[in-house]
Each structure stands twice: as C-alpha cells, then as structure tokens.
C-alpha cells in the first residue's frame, strides 16, 4: 500500500462523515418543516410540499449537485464547493426524510388523534408529546436507512471538487495506480461508517421501544 494513503483516506472519511452529519441534522430539521407543510390546512401550501418532493426526489443527486455548484457563483454566492455540497445534501435528504416523517404521521392511529384532541391539547404540546414521540418510534428504521444513504450519497460531491473520501481515493489512485487496494479501502471506510450508523440506529430503537409489547426487541 502506498505510504500515507491510509491517513489520507481516514481524513477523507472524516470529511464524508461531517458532510453526512450536516445532511442528517439539516435534512431532519428541513424535513420536520416540510412534513408540517404536508399536512397544512390549505391545499396550496400542501402543493408546495408535493412539488418540492417530486422535484428533488425525481432528479439525480449528481445533477442537483452540479446545478447548485454552477448556479451559486451566478447567484453571486461565492461560497465554494463545500457550502454548495452541504446544501445540496441537505436539500436531498430533506425530501427523503420528509416522506419518512409523513408516513409516520399517517401511521398514527385515528383514535390517538381523537384522544389527544379530546384533551384539548394545544398544537405545540400535541406535537411534542404525541406526534413527535410516536413518529420517531414508527419511522426509526426508514430514517436510519436515509442516514446510511446520506453517507454514501456524499461521495457524489467529489464531482464538484469537495474533498472527501471518494476524492481522496481518486487522488491517491492517480499518483499510485493502486486502484483496487485504494478503492477497496475506501469501500471499507464507507462500510464501517454505515455499519456504525446502523448500530446506533438499533441502539436507539431498543431504547425507544414501546414498553410492554410482546416481541418489542424484534
């Protein structure tokens, strides 16, 4: 193995993880907002949600990344590839998370809504005490799915010169031609990160499992 390449790959992995973390945190916040819009009282507002999801979900991440990268200087936002890359990841995962959350809200049984309504809970308490806890529990597996995907999706940003794990690997390969070793190592790094997120998700699932149900550790 070319000397120093492992350290470079590790650095790239850290950047990838940071990008994914930003996508997860930013995307989650965006998705909560979007999912709220999805259940708005007015049809015009709900339509905003649908258009957003259709457009973002219906476009390749690669194309979105290029689009934003080239559009930002044109918009006089000279922020470089890192900001553009982070934004595009947030926009993308936001749409995916939003659909996950929307599904979770739809899964809340009608009697639960009625119980909460009959207590006269104000909207914020309804969200904090009923909707958020239930949706979190219902959607954890697909949510983790999108989290894992966002780690891998960050590799696309190498195309707009965001230096992360994939770009680090390509640079090393250009110097050393150790294609399979380096790509194999990069894949291993990605796998470890994704596996870690998976395990975290499982832990959280166990922690949040509704108590008292048979087979709660399925």
């Amino acid at each position: 193995m070319p000397p120093g390449s492992l350290a470079l790959l590790a650095q790239g992995a850290v950047v990838s993880l940071l990008l994914a973390a930003a996508a997860i945190v930013g995307g989650t916040l965006l998705a909560v907002l979007l999912a709220t819009i999805a259940f708005a009282r007015f049809a015009a507002v709900r339509a905003v949600y649908r258009v957003y999801v259709y457009v973002v979900r219906g476009t390749p991440l690669l194309v979105l990344a290029l689009l934003l990268f080239y559009a930002m200087p044109a918009l006089d936002l000279r922020t470089g590839p890192y900001i553009a890359g982070t934004l595009v990841l947030i926009v993308y995962t936001g749409a995916l998370f939003a659909e996950v959350f929307r599904g979770g809200v739809l899964a809340i049984p009608r009697p639960q809504w009625e119980s909460a309504r009959s207590l006269g809970l104000p909207p914020l308490a309804m969200f904090r005490k009923i909707v958020a806890p239930l949706v979190t529990r219902y959607t954890l597996p697909p949510y983790v799915n999108v989290c894992v995907m966002s780690v891998k999706a960050s590799s696309v940003l190498s195309i707009i010169s965001v230096w992360e794990l994939t770009l680090a690997a390509r640079e090393i390969i250009e110097r050393t031609f150790a294609v399979f070793t380096i790509l194999g190592l990069a894949a291993a790094f990605y796998f470890v990160m994704c596996f870690g997120i998976d395990r975290l998700g499982r832990l959280l699932e166990r922690h949040l499992a509704l108590k008292g149900f048979a087979g709660e550790r399925a």
């Binding site: 009625e114 119980s115 207590l119 006269g120």
Partner: peptide, 21 residues
C-alpha cells in the same frame, strides 16, 4: 374548541391510552 373540550372527558371503547407514556 380546545377550551370547550376541556370541560368534557371522553372514554373510548378501545381505551386509546398513549402507548409511549
């Protein structure tokens, strides 16, 4: 409506307790 509802209590056939609490 919330204020009015607080003057009433309803109990359902299927209990409908909040499972996470």
């Amino acid at each position: 409506a919330r204020r009015m509802r607080q003057q009433m209590g309803i109990v359902f056939q299927q209990y409908n307790l909040f499972p996470h609490m």
